[in-house]
Design a protein around this nucleic acid. Structure first.
Lengths: 205, 205
DNA sequence: GTGCAGTTGCACAACAATGTGCAATGTACG
DNA sequence: CGTACATTGCACATTGTTGTGCAACTGCAC
């Protein structure tokens, strides 16, 4: 096999990718899924997984790295084109919604015993950026909440997580979910429902 | 020792209770805590725990039973004196807040791999009652949300969980937490921030 | 003190999961 | 076909956890 930067995926690389994909969904279902469960779900033998990742820690770590990167990128992308805190929250929510699974695995792993040391740490830059937007909104009076900005950011995080689970459980139609999430995120921050609905509708035309 | 219905706790009963208490906080910290961790934290040997509970499942089950009962009672108590959906949500939130730890352990265990089969099931009566209140509020126009009632109920649940964690992480002062939670629960449902604040202030005079 | 419930300190078997070694087997590519 | 690499199917040692058995110990009541 040639060391091509681009070209034929070489079955090994394909397997590696598929293992990562399957591991994502499997760990989403059960954060304590064993290497054997993941391997079987990926259609390979446990031994093969160890051919790609030296340890469970490494496998989950790779997964987390990708997710952190994706989430950070989505957050940034959503925020950069925004005018004001409200629009930033709305755009950010809509952007993150595009990579819902990556976000879910991070929150799911972060809120349980620290499977990979430092998920919270690696996620904090994003959370701090989010906190800053919320603080600005609170200062400007665009948002109205009795909560301090950090707590509001945490609520925001869990709110998205909850709605992603709701879609997963069939309580919420996947079509409207993104917009609904954005509206709910805004109203939870104290933005009037009418204004929130209007803003989100404008952004997702 | 006599088979008294009330009276001296008899060291054994005292130990049993302490084990349950410690198990609550320990499982809150790490839902996969081993019997040894729990035993040591309770100041006894692992073998002693098995003298009170035949298995880990039984221990956690007893814990969950008590928590479900407490949460259901709090919810009911908060709702019975309420006039209208908004006040029901506010009172319910404030009531549940009194037994935050019991609530947290339930949500924490329910949202991970099913440690005890049927936590979700045993919690659904409460959730359905909550859903009904929210649905009524949406119908009456007191609440304004793009979310269907079940999804909103789920958001409500996770919102409380998030704020309890926020208190635990020091992001939110324990004093104001209950009122802040109630206000946030209302605004997330689409109640104007001013009205929510006013209502909660009135209820917690 | 004597008795007794409760606790302790082992020892043990059973099981599940991790990580490694190695020979056999498949499979692509020239 | 033959070479090179990936995958497979074991076997194995190791570790952590669960649940049980039993003898010794502790404290409290009588």
């Amino acid at each position: 096999m040639a060391p091509m930067t681009t070209g034929t995926p070489s079955r090994a690389d394909a397997n590696r990718r598929r293992i990562l994909d399957v591991a994502l969904t499997e760990l989403l279902r059960d954060p304590d899924a064993s290497m054997d469960q993941i391997a079987r779900a990926a259609g390979v033998v446990r031994r093969t997984v160890y051919g790609h990742f030296p340890s469970r820690e490494a496998l989950v770590g790779t997964l987390v790295d990708g997710a952190v990167e994706a989430v950070a990128a989505a957050h940034a992308k959503g925020r950069e084109a925004a005018e004001g805190p409200a629009e930033a929250v709305a755009r950010g929510t809509l952007a993150v919604w595009e990579i819902a699974d990556r976000y879910r695995i991070l929150v799911a792993l972060a809120q349980r015993s620290v499977t990979v040391q430092g998920i919270r740490d690696r996620l904090t830059p994003v959370r701090e950026a989010c906190t800053e937007v919320l603080r600005q909104g609170l200062d400007e009076g665009v948002f109205s909440s009795p909560l301090p900005a950090p707590a509001l950011a945490y609520v925001h995080e869990q709110l998205l997580f909850a709605l992603m689970e709701a879609v997963n459980e069939g309580m919420l139609a996947a079509e409207e979910a993104g917009r609904s999430a954005a509206v709910t995120a805004l109203t939870a921050a104290g933005v009037p429902a009418s204004r929130a609905t209007e803003l989100v509708a404008k952004l997702s035309d």
